[in-house]
Design a protein around this nucleic acid. Sequence first.
DNA 1: TTGACGTATCTTTTT
DNA 2: GATACGTCAA
Length: 764
Amino acid sequence: MALNPSQQQAVTHPGGPMLVLAGAGAGKTSVLTQRIAHLVSKRGILPSRILVVTFTNKAAKEMKERLAKLLGKEVVKEIWAGTFHSICCRILRQDIAQLGTGHQTNFAIYDPRDQEKAMDFTLRRMNMDPEFYKATDMLSEVSRIKNSEMVGAKHTIQHQDPLMKRVFDGYQNYLSTNNALDFDDLLQLTLRLLHEHPEIAARYQQRFEHVLVDEYQDTNNVQFDFIRQFGAVHRNIFVVGDVDQSIYSFRHANFRIILRFQQDYPDATLIKLEENYRSTGNILDAANTLIKYNRERFEKTLISTKVAGEPLHFHVAQNEDEEATYIVQQIRMQHERDSLEFGDFCILFRTNTQSRLIEQYLIRSNIPYNLVGGYKFYDRKEIKDMMSYLNFLHNPQDSLSLQRIVNVPKRGIGPKAIDIIEKGAYFEGRGLTLWQALQESAIIDQLPPKANEAIQEFRYFTQQLLKEIHPVCNLPVSVIVERIFNDSGYKAEIEAESDEKKREDRIKNIESLIQAAVEYEESSKTPMNLSGFLEQLALFSDTDRLKNEGKLVTLMTVHSAKGLEYPVVFLPGMEEGLFPHARSVIDGEHAVEEERRLMYVAITRAKRRLHLIYTANRRSKYKNMTSKLSRFMLEIAAHLRIPGDLFLKAKEEAFQRRSKTGTGNTPAPIALKMPTAGPPVPTMNTSRPGGSATTITAPRAPLPTPPVRSTGQTLTLQPGDRVHHPQFGDGEVERVIRTLARIKFQTAGMKNIDLASAPLEKTS
DNA sequence: TTGACGTATCTTTTT
DNA sequence: GATACGTCAA
């Protein structure tokens, strides 16, 4: 691909900090890739001295594949590329023992489900009321602490709330006895390693001559610290991002970091890439129009390099069935009429649950599809069981995994027996892991004879396997899985299943896992590496595994679609409360702005055709509800008169359809009100080559919304305070942890409210 | 201890 | 409207 002057400048930048602000479809990834190629081939930088941080592992893999064509496979192998998490994991596997936290190099990585179990356990041991202190609440607070405060330099946190500090320490203690890390720890402990061991920090700082970061707008404070550390010596920090695509604040991403880059690095060079090479003009205009409603952004307008193209397609459906029917019919029709491949279509939704009905319709009409996220292969019971075996064999101190397999297949070791072992493990303040407890006859002798015998047998079996695997693992992962399956009695249990279909399904699942292991062995440099296999499963997301061979319609959330593009995009669920999500409306304007950025990401995934679908009556929970059209649609409509006036047309169609079917007794609630606030809007005409004339109205001044309350003005509440909430009414504060309040509302019941953002008023 | 059956509780987004 | 969880009998 030929580069434009700005792109060229970025690619050949001589050195020092550089910030590339690139809009959607402006060739961000190309610039990054070509820059690396330039560094290696033109400037003679050793590939092993380049570090590339991407947002997904798939992005890293694709970049490497592209680079392999330019530079050769052997060269590319030397480049460090991956997500923050996988890079940190790599560093920790090397040196984690030096931290003195008790972790060993074979540490396990706990996913959110594991985290919840670990937290439940911690709270139970602290005798805290689980009704009052929810594990998920505690975990989100723990995560917030880990992502905001510099825990790195200290062994324990300094926290205002002594109870929270105890919970934090208890949870961390549980993790380290189990030789496990959660996602946040991967980053946090890496930083700590660098802070406490200057010689290790120096090693990496010297080594990485160039540090490149993609999707910089979704970096959080800890990750920023990481980048700063790694680039400290050579200062060749090259970051690429787009403020308007910052959509991960719930993961503590802080887009102010990208806005601040030039303050952090005063000698930084700034390059803006505003030419869009992806979408046709009308699609881009809609995106530009929408995003101008946001206050917190860098002024930037994407310029289309393509024709105006088709107008946006807007469809009104009466209910979800109509919505799904419309999508399926359109795909069928376009597949034939425009000879588009199924792989050219993508259906994006705000929440995972929206996929279910559409899936059913796709299946019914024989359209092959690929669902990202949703029900996962690795969530199936058989797979989870086998994975627990593998996790346990890799790290026997992992009590959660051990607990999951100790009675799978059924061995007669029930909750009661486990309780006895657990009590033994914690007797008189000893903190043994489950596996350690199983080794002590003083503990297992308390069990009834039958359970005792079963434990002995289980212990013998697992010890045999452990001996073969540790310390030198000379068995391929697929063989280990087969061994477990055959010898643990799992196979026998499945074969005893009376339901034939179930039996076959489960065996098929196991076979797929073995297949996945084989694939891993073939692709990996070190085929016998159990650790690497588990790591891949823990850190690789679903998008990472997405294989688009052009034959499947893709279904996913807008979040997962970041960085991807499709000729035709469907965007169902254009309703207030769904998109923007009701939660964000409650949380306040800054949350709605993030939703708007999300919508911006969604629109800009489309290359040539964009379908927006509004469903008037959506079944939500147990009652039907009528939904209002999304404000985002109104914002687009207010300023952008698309040829044929899409809204009016859609409205007419909806009426016709309803009178035909005669089912509608509720009028379609399309409210196409032009905003009344604000000064009159100037209009301008632009003609585009090859496209029809489009009337675009320039955006007026931002809407007169109340300013976002800054963190300094967060409402401070105490238990017993009375409050008023516009949505939930009157309530009483029950508990406050930092900026999170648990409030009992008279009518709405118990809610957890974020004080930093919620429109809450103190009434007493 | 196991399995069957009934009931409460969710659904925002994910490395 | 599924799924995890609790309760009960065998």
